[in-house]
């Protein structure tokens, strides 16, 4: 009963949030995203956090061009100083902050249209470049890249053990071998080649993931550059949601998923409230994906 109440309240809250003016909602959600994505340079992160807190208290700031300009500069400067280790989605967040900056610099009657077009372009370009790089990488199309990720990248452990017929112990051993290949020389364990534990199912899964990702990213790139039409709009929203729900279940990269969901909300038309709600629900779902489900299920069974 209590759980039902929580779900009901959450549903009401999401509906209310979805009814809020996009120009009020998106800057607030962006500030939330910025606060949840800490920067690695304290002297840039501290002013950014302070500015975000002030803006939440004085909401008028959230629609001010200079505010978003300063935020973009702080975020962009951090990327400049840490280019070697900055995640891809942080670049997208920077472009998004610049998009908000430019949106609030145009006349109020054009702001919604500007925001919608910019976010559509950002999604389209992001997917186009992602598809381009995948097509250009020789080790992507034959499944090598995903096979490697499934064997050594910790973020893929759940999907590898669930669908790849490989034990978590084997994956831990693989990661240890990978670590020793790079750092074994420090301990007198120097080797240049190693064979990882795998399974035939994992190879098939890798090929499926490679082609599924390239298919859906190419479809999104195409759909988001298509001319405006109600049917096209509905299809692209649906495909973007399918992309987010499936991709971030396999590779839980919260930051990328969240910024894509914000862009999804931003490009929705006024009559697409259902999709707006769906994007917000998926925003929460991406956070849920990071929960240790296997551990929770094990704990419940043991009880």
């Amino acid at each position: 009963m209590k759980f039902q109440n929580v779900i009901n309240r959450l549903a009401v809250a999401i509906r209310q949030v979805a009814r809020t003016d996009v120009l009020d909602l998106l800057p607030l959600l962006t500030v939330l995203l910025l606060l949840l994505s800490p920067l690695s340079t304290w002297y840039l992160h501290t002013p950014l956090v302070l500015l975000c807190i002030i803006a939440v208290a004085y909401r008028k700031l959230l629609k001010a061009t200079p505010f978003w300009y300063i935020i973009s500069v702080l975020w962009g400067t951090t990327i400049y100083f840490h280019w070697e280790s900055t995640d891809n989605h942080k670049y997208l967040i920077c472009y998004w902050c610049l998009a908000l900056c430019t949106t609030f610099s145009v006349a109020p009657k054009d702001q919604l249209k500007a925001l919608r077009q910019t976010s559509r372009l950002l999604i389209g370009l992001c997917m186009t470049l992602a598809t381009f790089w995948k097509l250009m990488s020789p080790d992507y199309l034959d499944g090598t890249f995903f096979h490697y990720c499934l064997l050594v990248d910790e973020r893929f452990t759940s999907v590898a053990t669930t669908f790849g017929n490989i034990s978590s112990t084997a994956l831990t051993d693989n990661r240890e071998l990978w670590e020793l290949l790079r750092e074994g020389y420090l301990y007198g364990i120097e080797f240049q080649n190693t064979t990882l534990e795998t399974s035939p199912e994992l190879g098939k899964l890798a090929r499926f993931l490679s082609w599924w990702t390239i298919f859906i990213e190419a479809a999104l790139a195409w759909l988001f550059f298509m001319p405006a039409h109600p049917l096209v709009s509905r299809i692209r929203n649906f495909v973007l949601l399918v992309f987010a729900v499936t991709t971030y279940a396999v590779a839980p990269v919260k930051g990328f998923g969240w910024i894509l969901m914000l862009l999804g909300v931003a490009q929705c038309h006024n009559d697409e409230k259902a999709f707006r709600i769906a994007y917000l629900v998926t925003f929460l779902l991406i956070q849920c994906y990071t929960l240790p489900f296997a551990g929770i299920v094990k704990l419940l069974i043991e009880r």
Binding site: D139, D142, G143, T144, H147, Y148, L151, L177, W178, L181, Q192, N193, T194, T195, L196, E197, T198, G203, A206
Partner: peptide, 13 residues
């Protein structure tokens, strides 16, 4: 290192 998918092996050079 390079990863050879067929043998699931890592080759450092």
């Amino acid at each position: 290192y390079q990863f050879v998918s067929r043998h699931a092996s890592l080759h450092g050079r």
